[in-house]
Design a protein around this nucleic acid. Structure first.
Length: 231
DNA sequence: GCGACAG
DNA sequence: ATCTTGTCGC
């Protein structure tokens, strides 16, 4: 098994990572509309860690956006490239996720990430980072709140409330299942918030989390387990 | 200054 | 993220 090495020149400290983040942020596109919900392809990406063994496993699962059937899967295993620092999560996941995406033959279409895009302290979370680096439209669907305030959305599926930070709307708390904790949706790159939420609802016909992230989550866990066995 | 804080 | 059994419910 090939272990993805950390790229040469990868940020080694927080200050450098923040500087890189600022530079990439200049290339972020918010105005452009990605594909409509339910059309084309959607790709879920996720990673699993084993800090003890210094391993990260990433998975990319491409789905047909209309039928939600799996079109293709890819994984990659690498070395942990950065410690966990709230706000700098992307520097921990990006190298291995890019390797997994690079192993796909299919066009990924829209990237659905486990985390934030604009709803990030510097308005540039994992989803935006991956979007800018790949040039693909992307959205972030997180399971937990971060640095913003919001009101509880109504209990019906589809109900939502704005995520507000520094007086700006940076995303939405969106109820994907009636009476169940909402997910936190934000724009990653080249997609509007309206459309990001429409995609999220299309991807949650049955569970709170998008089918994309559910597939990617189970796949990267399996990949990590195999990597452990091989080490 | 202190605490909180995606995965 | 990860450490972790059983258990309640559809």
């Amino acid at each position: 098994m090939t272990i993805i090495e950390i790229p040469a020149g990868w940020p080694a400290d927080e200050d450098t990572a923040r500087a890189v983040q600022e530079e990439l942020r200049e290339r972020l596109v918010t105005a452009e509309e990605g594909p409509a919900a339910g059309t084309g392809r959607v790709t879920g990406v996720d990673v699993a860690y084993d800090d003890e063994r210094d391993l990260v496993a990433a998975a990319a699962v491409v789905l047909d956006a209309r039928t939600l059937e799996v079109v293709e899967e890819a994984t990659a295993v690498g070395r942990v490239s950065f410690p966990y620092v709230p706000g700098l999560l992307a520097f921990r996941e990006v190298p291995t996720v890019l390797a997994a995406l690079g192993r796909l033959a299919a066009d990924p279409g829209l990237l659905v990430c486990d985390g934030y895009g604009l709803a990030h302290p510097r308005r540039f979370g994992l989803a935006s980072h991956l979007g800018v680096v790949t040039g693909l439209p992307s959205i972030g669907v997180a399971k937990n709140p971060f640095t913003f305030t919001y009101e509880q959305p109504g209990t019906d599926r589809g109900a939502f409330a704005d995520l507000v930070a520094e007086g700006e709307t940076v995303g939405r708390a969106l109820r994907t299942r009636a009476g169940v904790k909402p997910v936190f949706v934000s724009v990653g790159h080249r997609v509007s918030l309206e459309r990001a939420c429409a995609h999220t609802l299309h991807l949650t016909p049955r569970y709170r989390l998008p089918e994309t992230t559910r597939h990617a989550d189970s796949l990267c866990r399996r990949a990590l387990a195999e990597a452990r066995a091989a080490e």
